[in-house]
Design a protein around this nucleic acid. Structure first.
Lengths: 191, 191, 191, 191
DNA sequence: CATGAATGAGAATTCATTCAT
DNA sequence: TATGAATGAATTCTCATTCAT
């Protein structure tokens, strides 16, 4: 494709890892996709596993960076939550393949490499928890167990890659709006 | 261990698939765990993939069966939702390894086999959606997009296997209670 | 060849390692020689390196065992030396391929594995040194630096694999006799 | 380092071949050591194998040249032997890496290239044999099989690279002196 | 039922060498 | 002279599965 081989390889890997899974994708597959010999790939990557690590790292970093900025902004917790959900869904959907690889394939990393991603994932949960605690402290939210609530929220959002089909008609905005309403107001008609 | 080889093998496989992942688990590993030779395993299983399929099938079936009974019962939708969440969390946690294999490893199945599980998974989503629609129809719930809400709920619940540690002090009841409250009443103090 | 595959494989490996060297011999070569598929070899060996280790281990063990018995026997040091040389040359020549692999290829082992062989090699030097010290103590020998003399003797004997051709007419006895005379009496006509 | 790239490369190769062995040393390793890119090396060398050949050739040449001069000199055979040993040990120890590569790695050369070194090695043996024959003829030595004795002597001397540690306290003189005495007078107290 | 030998395809990775720039 | 991208062949090792005994 482009002249930037490093990027081409990452793109090819993301595509194949998402389609077939990390284990079912051979280095040969990636080389074929990018139009190189198997051996030539190793000018650009350390190993197949490292390639996965880079992809996962880049993916989780984007989530973390954006949520950090939202957390730091000077707006009500309620708005941080809405923005945070919107951000998560938007990023998930616009980078659907990368997000899928992050959430589905990172487990295939070796113990040490997996921990690198795990640490960043833990950080993401932590940011969400802080938003909820903030809302609790200033009286916006009622949330007796902020970490558990954050896990519920994160679960709902991280599940999106499993069912979202780009061919469908749902936009990130629609999904975010429904999710925000659900988590803010709950299902009950008259609570 | 027991005399029921078929079951022993499934148990060993569940344990190993959960610990190391399906691809990283060799047939030799399973044979070692169960105290048999590699070749002898094939008196009990068709293939490694079939073993995974059986495990996943059994796992999703339990979820479906129990939720179907809850849906059919003669109680308010609100209670169905609470029971459904409680059931899901309880089953997830008491069969944590099996649930993990279902949710994390089923993707490693071949296309055809994977569809078998996918169909049952779709059914589970459908049951949840019906509960929400029921609550909407009888005025208990306000839920403009029941399927989207069901996906949020399911995501939150299916994420549990990713963070629950049996060593932790949280019981299934505590988690279910927090989740139910969250999905019923939302986070806002004064909606 | 025979029905003992383990032994056949070791024999094939010795033959090829001697002919082409350890690095130039591929696992495929060994499989071909023994009439097996590449993958089938791994029922019998842990790794190519382990195969080399086994061969080297067996080789040095024979040298050590026999020299230990000579050292322990109740005969003059002079005779121990003569017998020791005879033993070394005889073993070297009758197992010429194995001895070659031991002395030429063991360096190709990884650090840890190489140390295993090195330890046994050091032991062999130690045994020779003891023989010389014994002769020194009881007045048979004049040997101011026994360890250095042992190294000279060992060098001379360990060099044999480099020049001995089985097609030649020299017997182990002839060589041993010349070597013994040389080390006992020296070259000088009238010392 | 220096401006003489050709020499720098040879030095780097000697160092690495000695440390890791010829096969375990990659062209990349040599390039790294000398501070060049892999491809750039090929402006200075024909091939990795050729590099080894040059090193081995230079090494054996020094042994041959010096021993030839000793053989040609007008001194008793006994003195030629002493000087020859001293020369060999001194050269071995002061060029320990090069000598190690010559004696341990030359076998990795292809058949044709290896023969080039073999021929020079044979010549070296021949020179030693002539010294012994000379001593035999003029009555200085008693040496019924001069070639066999030369092989013993050569073996003892060529073994030095295997055990000499520069950190040790032994000088080339000490070793040479012990070796000369041993080969001239033998071990026996009263022959 | 159980074994374990055998298969054969396929995996990731290394590496000496070439060559256009 | 120096680079570094590219090659393509080779290498060790793994593994699910089969089958004769």
């Amino acid at each position: 494709m482009g002249a930037n081989r490093q990027a081409d390889i990452a793109l090819a890997a993301v595509k194949l890892f998402e389609q077939k899974g990390y284990h079912a994708t051979s280095v040969q597959d990636i080389a074929d996709e990018v139009g190189l010999q198997k051996g030539s790939l190793y000018h650009y990557i350390h190993s197949k596993e490292d390639l996965l690590l880079q992809i996962a790292h880049q993916a989780i970093s984007e989530f973390n960076d954006k949520l950090e900025r939202i957390l730091a902004s000077d707006i009500p917790a309620r708005e941080k939550l809405t923005l945070g959900i919107q951000n998560h869904i938007t990023v998930s959907i616009s980078n659907l393949q990368t997000t899928t690889v992050l959430l589905r394939e990172a487990f295939s990393l070796g113990e040490h490499q997996h921990q690198v991603i795990q640490d960043q994932t833990d950080r993401y949960l932590d940011l969400w928890t802080q938003i909820l605690i903030e809302g609790q402290k200033n009286g916006e939210f009622t949330v007796p167990q902020p970490k558990l609530a954050a896990l519920a929220l994160l679960g709902a959002c991280n599940w999106v890659y499993r069912w979202y089909k780009s061919s469908g008609k749902l936009t990130a905005e629609e999904i975010s709006s429904v999710f925000s309403d659900l988590f803010l107001k709950g299902l009950l008609q008259n609570p």
